[in-house]
Design a protein around this nucleic acid. Structure first.
Lengths: 209, 209
DNA sequence: ACAAAAGTGTTCGATATACACCCATGT
DNA sequence: ACATGGGTGTATATCGAACACTTTTGT
């Protein structure tokens, strides 16, 4: 029986939640877009395999990753029995990513507006999305999508992009304050023609996440 | 690479949350207790495999089951690379279970007071316990541990056994009322020398769980 | 009559939501 | 001076936690 890992890689681009997909070059599902993934090697843990796939696709390695769910219906891959352990990962929007992999065409798609995917990858992506939305509410995963230093408005835009709804600025800021994870940097970001915004970094907390 | 399913089977016995373990007859971990499990067959889904293991161990088949997490560290099984998809299942305390399997010795242990287990099964069991406790708070999984008809006190005892703490009777009943999942049966249970308790069944809701 | 478990409301603090105006900056 | 996004507080509704007495039955 074959075991693979598939990694749903999210980032924020242009203010929307986007997911990295690769275009398949061979059958089955030739030319269809799919979630990046590959076989688990003999001496690596499942998470190491997921991190390796991630690094191969994006070039980055130190980031948030979490096991999502395992999919193994017979027939999900027409070539044979393949069980996949799905992971999801969050990449900071500041990271410079390998433009497109040597081996395969890769591109970012808005998570909600994407082409139909190969295999059961639509199902996997939906599971990742709903897990991400859930965790956003009771953890600090959202911070993983931003660069080290960020403004409160940027953070709020991340939440809004993921939840796909507008949030109240004052309530949002109060909630963040209660979490006690924001450390003011004293510094500001001047982004052009308006009042500069204070910068924050995430305080390392043992809990949350 | 080998793929197995392991199933953490919970029930309520003597007012405590118990888990079904089997004693291993062969190395590795000969004589140690372990979570029941086995290989995934070629033409069955992962969940079907988990249900089959469950039926083989307990003789029951229509019950609550849910995928928990996958464990696949190299070295978790000294015989070779084995990835296991862990499930957890809830068996109603009313069910008559096969006393002990033909093939292997099986027994119930209090979930909190159990012997050290084979492989990484302690880790799996801990994960199952914390998942169960979590889900208890925002779903109706707890009902799965009771027979079809039950009293409110019985239901409260289930919650208390799982959370390992006492709950307030009035607050508990109000919470159940808000859930709108209790259908009064009109009938009562006379259990001896005291006031009879009203019986309820769970109303089938599409949501929850 | 009494022992034993069933059943029932109210108060209070904490948390979540709705809502509008002034501030600092660059041009 | 004005346009732009940054920043701030209060009032109300909702939810969870604490808490004690009366009712129904069998003996």
């Amino acid at each position: 029986m074959l075991v693979t890992v598939d990694v749903v890689i999210f980032t924020i681009r242009d203010g929307t939640l986007q997911v990295l997909l690769v275009r398949r070059k061979y059958p089955p599902f030739k030319e269809r877009w799919a979630i990046p993934g590959g076989f688990v090697h003999d001496r690596e843990t499942l998470e190491e395999a997921a991190l390796r796939e991630l690094r191969e696709e994006t070039g980055v390695s130190d980031l948030y990753i979490e096991q999502l769910y395992s999919f193994g219906d017979p027939g999900r891959d027409p070539r044979g029995r393949v069980v996949t352990i799905a992971y999801f990962a969050l990449v900071s929007s500041a990271r410079e990513l390998k433009a497109s992999t040597d081996a395969s065409e890769a591109a970012w798609f808005p998570a909600g507006k994407r082409p139909p995917l190969a295999f059961d990858h639509d199902q996997i992506l939906d599971a990742a999305l709903s897990r991400l939305r859930n965790k956003l509410e009771y953890t600090t995963v959202g911070f993983q999508l931003l660069p080290r230093a960020f403004t409160l408005t940027e953070l709020q835009r991340v939440y809004e992009a993921i939840l796909a709804k507008r949030l109240d600025k004052r309530n949002f800021r109060r909630k963040m304050e209660i979490l006690k994870v924001l450390k003011p940097l004293g510094d500001v970001r001047r982004s052009g023609l308006k009042r500069p915004a204070r910068l924050y970094v995430m305080r390392r907390t043992k809990f949350e996440l």
